[in-house]
């Protein structure tokens, strides 16, 4: 077959150089206009749209042979999609990988920000499904673009306030909108609002890639990121009643693990690397003896 040989040859990090240049230019503009969504000509990637193609394109355009990559999904390195994306970069870029937050130079994430504070030499790349924070209030791109241009964010406040009126709470628990540098309202991606404060004045560069929706945005290091709220209903994060059952950490985000069908459950760190490190250094949770490795 004429194609058999040349089919297997892909560029370093999969993307061709022209595509990388286009994405790199978008990243630079995104950094210069924090929170503003830069349109880019997103490419088809060899994984489905909605499965991290935006994050993968950003990572592929930033990544070099000297980098160490960490990929997490739901805070964990061993979730199947994280494993798949990490394997992709090992294959197409032969890059060093790690599960340790502190050792990574680039961390690609879906739905969480690591518990361990990030440092100046790190880049956090978020996978974003719907980058437009106003999308569920106004489905039309032509309209939301105008709203951003005019800094017309009243609708968002009305929505949040209606929540309070109906439920007594702001009913948004994840993808909680933030305002960046006092100008753009931005979707932090579907991270739990627990993670929002970590974005504020973060030492690391934060890049956001939405492949299907064809947008890239950024928060430079040390940038003001404020979660929207009201004076009488200030923003607050989730608090858990008990510490991690494995490492006894409190003040971290926990996953609920159902143990049986009689209401038995335990709460464990969502950030698996953070939890493992604590256990290695001797922290013991209430149920650390009986959990062991979870099974398939």
């Amino acid at each position: 077959m004429k194609h058999q040989q040349d089919l297997a040859t892909y560029n370093f990090a999969y993307l061709d150089e022209q595509t990388k240049r286009m994405i790199r230019r978008a990243i630079l503009k995104a950094i210069a206009i924090p929170g503003y969504q830069v349109p880019f000509a997103s490419r088809e990637m060899p994984m489905p749209y909605g499965w991290g193609t935006g994050g993968v394109q950003v990572t592929a355009s930033v990544l070099g042979p000297d980098d160490t990559l960490k990929v997490i999904d739901q805070g964990a390195d061993d979730t199947t999609n994280a494993v798949s994306i990490r394997a992709f970069f090992q294959k197409v870029a032969n890059v060093a990988v790690t599960t340790q937050t502190g050792k990574a130079t680039i961390i690609q994430t879906r739905h969480r920000i690591p518990e361990e504070p990030l440092s100046e030499n790190q880049v956090l790349v978020y996978q974003v499904p719907i980058p437009e924070p106003l999308r569920f209030l106004e489905p039309r791109e032509t309209e939301t673009r105008k709203m951003h241009a005019l800094e017309e964010y009243g609708l968002m406040h009305v929505k949040l306030y209606e929540d309070i009126a109906r439920n007594g709470h702001i009913a948004t628990t994840y993808a909680y909108p933030v305002k960046v540098m006092g100008r753009y309202v931005m979707d932090p991606s579907p991270t739990p609002k627990f993670d929002n404060p970590k974005m504020h004045q973060c030492a690391a560069l934060q890049l956001f890639g939405a492949g299907r929706e064809k947008r890239i945005y950024a928060i430079p290091p040390y940038t003001q990121v404020v979660s929207l709220d009201f004076e009488d209903h200030p923003f607050e994060v989730q608090a858990f009643d008990e510490p991690c059952a494995l490492c006894a950490a409190s003040g971290v985000y926990l996953d609920e693990v159902v143990l049986d069908d009689r209401g038995g459950r335990m709460f464990v760190c969502s950030d698996t690397d953070f939890c493992e490190k604590r256990r290695e250094s001797g922290h013991v949770g209430a149920m650390s003896g009986q959990s062991g490795e979870t099974v398939q």
């Binding site: 370093f12 990388k20 790199r24 950094i31 930033v62 070099g64 430079p220």
Partner: peptide, 19 residues
């Protein structure tokens, strides 16, 4: 080496604009 050279230069440009 267009791919590797461009990547290294880009990272510095990106750092420069981010910091």
């Amino acid at each position: 080496n267009p791919d590797f050279d461009a990547q290294m230069v880009f990272r510095q440009i990106m750092n420069a604009l981010a910091r």
